[in-house]
């Protein structure tokens, strides 16, 4: 298991199970369509089954846990393919119109048209990260360390449940453990212990070498 922990801030609403179920269904993943403007979208899916987005109560609630898949779909057209197809389209357009140049607007429109055409011939890239929320503990375990999906998940979590997630870190862990007054003062004044020989660090040596 590879995961990062997030701590839930805020109180659970009354009848949270029913409310959360509705909220999860509302934010369930809607697959991307080729003609849509959006190039990337995230939503909830069934844990371990990213293509199941019609979620039942038993899919989401495992006793004291909420379990979900955080799915993100993204159109990923290979750059060289897009460039080649756009050039072909531009050449065909110029020939048809009997012109030598395209305006900026025409170029943008052609690129969009080609992109949509290519999207119809392919599927978006799907990525899903499992998540388990231990409701009693107030802890979300998100099975990825990557920053981008972590940040996107925090945003969707807030929109869905109305609760804020705080990522685990030495600071938050210390706050949870609780420090007495003397420890708090020491924490405030804390400086990194340096074991570098002669108190010098790699960066200092590198700076000297540069000089």
């Amino acid at each position: 298991m590879t995961y990062a922990r997030f701590f839930v801030e805020g109180e659970l609403p009354d009848e949270f199970r029913e409310r959360f179920m509705k909220a999860v269904r509302l934010r369930a993943m809607r697959p991307l369509e080729p003609d849509e403007e959006e190039l990337e979208r995230s939503g909830w899916a069934k844990i371990g089954e990213p293509f199941v987005v019609d979620l039942a109560y038993d899919d989401v609630f495992f006793n004291e846990y909420v379990v979900l898949g955080f799915r993100t779909d993204r159109w990923a057209i290979p750059g060289p393919v897009l460039r080649t197809r756009v050039k072909e389209a531009e050449a065909a357009y110029l020939e048809k119109k009997g012109r030598e140049r395209l305006s900026r607007k025409e170029k943008a429109e052609l690129k969009l048209m080609v992109s949509k055409k290519l999207r119809r011939q392919m599927s978006p890239v799907t990525r899903s990260v499992d998540l388990s929320w231990a409701i009693g503990e107030g802890v979300v375990r998100f099975f990825s360390h990557a920053q981008k999906p972590g940040a996107a998940m925090m945003e969707l979590f807030k929109k869905t449940f109305g609760l804020t997630l705080v990522p685990e870190s030495p600071y938050t862990a210390a706050a949870r453990i609780g420090l007495d007054k003397a420890q708090e003062k020491a924490w405030h004044d804390l400086e990194m212990t340096c074991l570098a020989s002669g108190g010098r660090r790699v960066t200092d040596e590198a700076a000297e070498e540069e000089e």
């Binding site: 705080v166 870190s169 030495p170 938050t172 804390l190 990194m192 212990t193």
Partner: peptide, 25 residues
């Protein structure tokens, strides 16, 4: 914890090294 007017994200970042010292210890 200190109620200094520093944003939570900054307080988290400023004390990341403590986790490294945990590993060292």
């Amino acid at each position: 914890m200190s109620a200094a007017p520093i944003h939570l994200a900054d307080r988290i970042e400023l004390r990341r090294f403590v986790g490294r010292e945990l590993l060292l210890w």
